[in-house]
């Protein structure tokens, strides 16, 4: 069976995957509610509908971050070596990248959760 997990790539860009997911999630939530609160009358949507939609989107974002974390964990050699990863070898460079990406995935996961909190507790636009 062909694996659905992306194969390993050699690039610096993967470091930014999880924070980019956070940024996209942040923008979608903010813009989503900003447009909704400005245009509620003409949109025929309830606040709860927007909230549920963005809730599902939040779960998707979290899933993406978990995937990024898994790939990072793999790049880190599944945690076989401990930091500081400061040897002048390709292996240590990869492990460093993996570990830093893993840490960033953790931070992004928490930051996305923070974004979800207002959507749980605030039930209307409240201008």
């Amino acid at each position: 069976m062909k694996s659905v997990i992306p194969r390993e790539v050699e690039t610096l860009w993967t470091l930014f995957t999880a924070p980019v997911v956070w940024a996209v999630h942040f923008l979608v939530c903010y813009v989503g509610f900003a447009v909704y609160c400005a245009k509620a009358l003409s949109l025929h949507l309830s606040f709860d509908a927007v909230r549920i939609g963005l809730g599902v989107f939040t779960l998707l974002a979290l899933a993406m971050i978990v995937l990024s974390a898994y790939l990072a964990w793999r790049q880190w050699g599944y945690g076989t070596g401990d930091p500081p990863h400061d040897a002048p070898t390709r292996q240590d460079r990869k492990h460093f990248q993996g570990f830093a990406t893993l840490l960033l995935s953790g931070l992004s996961f928490i930051a996305v959760l923070y974004m979800a909190i207002p959507m749980i507790f605030i039930a209307e636009c409240q201008r």
Binding site: F33, A34, C37, I110, M115, P118, F121
Partner: peptide
């Protein structure tokens, strides 16, 4: 005078930046 849900997003992110 922005909607409070918008303010809350930015408040949450402002607290999150404390972590790094």
């Amino acid at each position: 005078g922005l909607p409070q849900i918008s303010l809350a997003f930015f408040s949450a992110a402002s607290e999150a930046v404390v972590i790094p």
